[in-house]
Design a protein around this nucleic acid. Structure first.
Lengths: 342, 342
DNA sequence: GTTGGCAATGTAATCGATTACACGAAAGTA
DNA sequence: TACTTTCGTGTAATCGATTACATTGCCAAC
């Protein structure tokens, strides 16, 4: 029932050698047309399937690529993966998923595991920017396995990345709040050691400065990407001498929490308080009080990362291209930052 | 820089054979303790890494398992995959992701591709129940590769599945609407050729009958899982002679669409119209008008599927266990079906 | 002193496919 | 006719690890 058919079986049946069978199947021009046809027919009739593992061992290419993300059950990462998978599918690559749960040790393990599994490339979003597991990255580079960062990248010479312009994202979101007439704009930031959060913050700051609004450190709150964290941040902000009248949050979840807390306190959104988030999570547009948010085009990011990988994979080892693709963020303006009064 | 170290390199260095090295590395008891230590030390110092592809070819086990889902960028499937990955990670399995986009042809391709890639098992949620690509499934079974269905399964003898009790899910959601005093409960159903939707519908129907409410075919609308479809369904339902006063939707997205349309028409939710959905998508609890929904515990479903796989993978070919795990759905009651008036 | 047994290691086949090199036959050339 | 190409296949090595079977040396038992 489950007999595995190999090229040797075909060879035996036709009284030729496995080498000839292999050549016939691979369209080697040195094979007589009649032989080729015979082999192809026989292979089909015997239901022959090439053993990809043998091929992988011989060629050194597994046709698998590894994708490492902090977690898969987030709309953003899932969409990126979707993009990667769709782009790579036609090229015969399979996508292996790893999660780090933001744990550097896990990240390092994943890198080693993927290299052990002989993947042809690694696409990842880093969890931690610490230099601790640099050895894992060095290992990848030494093995000459293409490495591409997406969204959250790390500065390593010769390594390509696909990110969005987080600075600009922070800038346009903040600018929109300013345009609505907000004077005291607070910022909920993520872990500043990650580039993305730092840049969103810098974009926010620059937008303030460009529009003659003083930057106030007290308005910047470092918080996690959670509803709870957003609520807590509002608690703190409203205690200030001059409470803010708007929030630009680096996380949609925190933005949601902020809105919930503001509602609880009967503060009118958007007329008395505007809110903008980041990521364009599905729920931001579903809410009745739909939330203004910066879209990161995750699908496109995934596709682009895959394309960058494909460009690199065939290059000889000597040529190393370092490609930095930066996608443009897009602000989706919704109710939470659209004042009805002037 | 990128020299691959093999057991032969170690053997040469120590003037022994690769066989001895292999045995030492594998803790074969026939190896002298001193030799083992020497080999282990040398392997470490040379930075030896076992070539998993060679191992896979020799053993016939790739340590990869394939997961096929309609799409990955849905909270439900992403969460299931998370569960699978977490459960399998400690066992050294890698997860390969495939998407069908609800396309039977793609589903069939994915099955063949995974078998070609010599995965050790396949966990999947079917896209289509049509018998067209039965040959792909037969292929999997013939190759004796463990196959496990989750959520959306197919009746194949000897194949295990992990699902939730969709009938009960439909029942408890409907029952809650009845408890709220709703008399005319409509149902937005998905594709009835899929078991899950049929069972949710049957649960709905049974709940009506058990509570002395007449079943009315006109109240059942087959719609897609989208916001738009939910809106359209409401349009139709409100045209009826006796419009319903509640909706149980098999999809949270359609439930959301329904709510939006009802709001547009100034129909008061939940006092004049109750709504319940299915899947417990994140947004259902984030909304101000939070949506009652049936939770499918996707994480647990993923973990359980992985466990069922692990049980099967080591069994000899002769023993085939067919395990049908049915998880209990849990109703999360929220504002959309909690009347404030009696 | 021969034989048996055991411990430790070596030899070589195997997994399935690819491919450099070799070789015989046919065909072309002088 | 004799020599060189060319064509189509065969031979055998290779990818890296595992493992059945063989071998070696040593010690004990008779």
């Amino acid at each position: 029932m489950s007999e595995k058919i190999t090229i040797y079986d075909i060879a035996k049946k036709l009284n030729i050698t496995a080498a000839t069978v292999s050549r016939a199947l691979n369209n080697n021009p040195k094979i007589k047309e009649s032989t080729r046809e015979l082999v192809l027919e026989t292979a089909a009739s015997m239901n022959y399937k090439q053993n990809k593992l043998a091929l992988a061992l011989k060629s050194g290419r597994s046709n698998n690529i590894g994708v490492i993300v902090p977690r898969i059950d987030s709309n953003f990462f899932a969409s990126v993966i979707r993009g990667i998978e769709e782009e790579l599918y036609p090229h015969g690559y399979q996508v292996i998923i790893c999660q780090t749960h933001e744990n550097p040790k896990r990240e390092s393990e994943n890198l080693y595991t993927l290299i052990d599994a002989q993947v042809d490339g690694i696409l990842m979003s880093v969890s931690d920017v610490n230099d601790e597991n640099n050895s894992a990255f060095r290992n990848v580079l030494e093995k000459n396995v293409p490495l591409i960062f997406f969204d959250r990248s790390k500065h390593i010479e010769g390594v390509s990345s696909v990110t969005i312009n987080d600075f600009k994202g922070g800038y346009i979101a903040t600018k929109q709040l300013i345009n609505q007439g907000c004077k005291h704009i607070a910022h909920l930031s993520g872990d500043q050691s990650l580039e993305i959060f730092k840049n969103r913050f810098l974009g926010y700051k620059q937008a303030l400065l460009d529009n003659g609004i003083e930057f106030n450190e007290k308005y910047v709150i470092q918080s996690k990407s959670s509803v709870e964290a957003g609520k807590e941040a509002v608690d703190i902000l409203l205690e200030l001498e001059t409470p803010p009248d708007a929030i630009f949050s680096s996380s949609d979840f925190a933005a949601l929490g902020a809105i919930q807390e503001l509602n609880e306190r009967n503060i009118n959104i958007p007329d008395d308080f505007c809110v903008a988030g980041f990521s364009n999570e599905p729920f931001t547009k579903f809410m009745e009080m739909s939330i203004t948010s910066v879209d990161q085009s995750p699908l496109e990011m995934g596709r682009m990362s895959a394309r960058v990988f494909l460009e690199q994979v065939d290059k000889t080892d000597t040529i190393k291209i370092e490609k930095k693709v930066v996608l443009a963020p897009e602000l989706h303006i919704r109710k939470s930052s659209t004042r009805t009064t002037s």
